[in-house]
Amino acid sequence: MKDNGTMAWDFPDPFIHEVTVEPHHIDDFQHTNNVVYLTWMAKTAWEHSKALGLDFAAYAKLNRGMVVRRHELEYFAPSHAGDRVLVATWITGNDGRLRLRRRFQMINAMTGVTLLRGLSDFVCINIETGKATRMPAEFATTYRLTATVEGDA
Rank of each mutant, 00 (worst) to 15 (best):
Pro23Gln: 04
Gly5Asp: 05
Val36Tyr: 13
Leu115Arg: 05
Val149Tyr: 04
Met7Leu: 14
Phe104His: 01
Gly151Ile: 15
Asn108Thr: 12
Lys43Cys: 05
Ala77Lys: 13
Arg103Tyr: 10
Ala81His: 13
Asn33Pro: 07
Gly118His: 07
Pro23Tyr: 15
Thr6Asn: 12
Val21Phe: 08
Trp9Lys: 01
Asn126Ser: 02
Arg70Asp: 02
Leu86Glu: 00
Phe56His: 14
Asp55Gln: 08
Phe104Cys: 00
Arg97Ser: 10
Asp55Tyr: 03
Thr142Lys: 15
Ala153Leu: 13
Glu72Ile: 06
Pro14Ser: 01
Thr32Ser: 10
Thr89Val: 15
Arg64Asp: 11
Asp152Ala: 02
Pro78Val: 03
Arg69Met: 01
Arg84Thr: 13
Ala147Leu: 11
Arg70Thr: 00
Ala51Arg: 10
Glu47Gly: 06
Val36Phe: 10
Ile91His: 04
Ile26Arg: 03
Asn33Ala: 10
Thr146Gln: 12
Gln30Arg: 11
Arg144Ser: 13
Arg144Gly: 04
Thr44His: 09
Ala60His: 04
Ala147Glu: 07
Thr20Val: 05
Asp95Cys: 06
Pro78Phe: 08
Thr92Gly: 01
Asn126Phe: 12
Asp13Glu: 15
Arg134Tyr: 09
Tyr143Phe: 13
Leu115Val: 14
Arg64Gly: 02
Ala109Leu: 09
Ala45Cys: 15
Asn108Leu: 09
His31Lys: 09
Arg97Lys: 14
Val113Lys: 14
Asn108Ala: 10
Ala51Trp: 12
Ala58Arg: 10
Ser120Leu: 01
Ala88Pro: 01
Glu138Gln: 09
Lys43Ala: 06
Arg101Glu: 14
Gln30Cys: 06
Tyr143Asp: 02
Arg69His: 13
Tyr75Trp: 01
Leu145Met: 09
Ala132Met: 08
Ala88Val: 07
Val85Arg: 03
Lys50Glu: 10
Leu119Trp: 08
Arg84Pro: 05
Asn126Tyr: 10
Trp46Pro: 04
Phe11Ile: 04
Asn108Phe: 10
Glu18Ala: 07
Thr142Gly: 06
Val21Ser: 05
Val68Cys: 09
Leu54Thr: 02
Gly82Trp: 11
Trp9Ser: 00
His80Ser: 09
Thr114Trp: 03
Gln30Val: 08
Asp152Met: 14
Leu100Asp: 00
His80Leu: 10
Ser120Trp: 05
Asn34Thr: 02
Asp121Arg: 14
Gln105Asn: 13
Asp10Trp: 05
Gly93Pro: 08
Met135Tyr: 12
Ala45Met: 03
Met7Ser: 05
Pro12Arg: 15
Ala60Tyr: 06
Glu22His: 15
His17Phe: 07
Thr129Cys: 05
Leu115Met: 05
His80Arg: 15
Ala153Cys: 09
Met106Tyr: 05
Leu62Glu: 15
Ile26Phe: 03
Thr44Asp: 03
Asp27Ser: 03
Ile125Cys: 01
Arg144Tyr: 11
Ala57Ile: 04
Met41Ser: 02
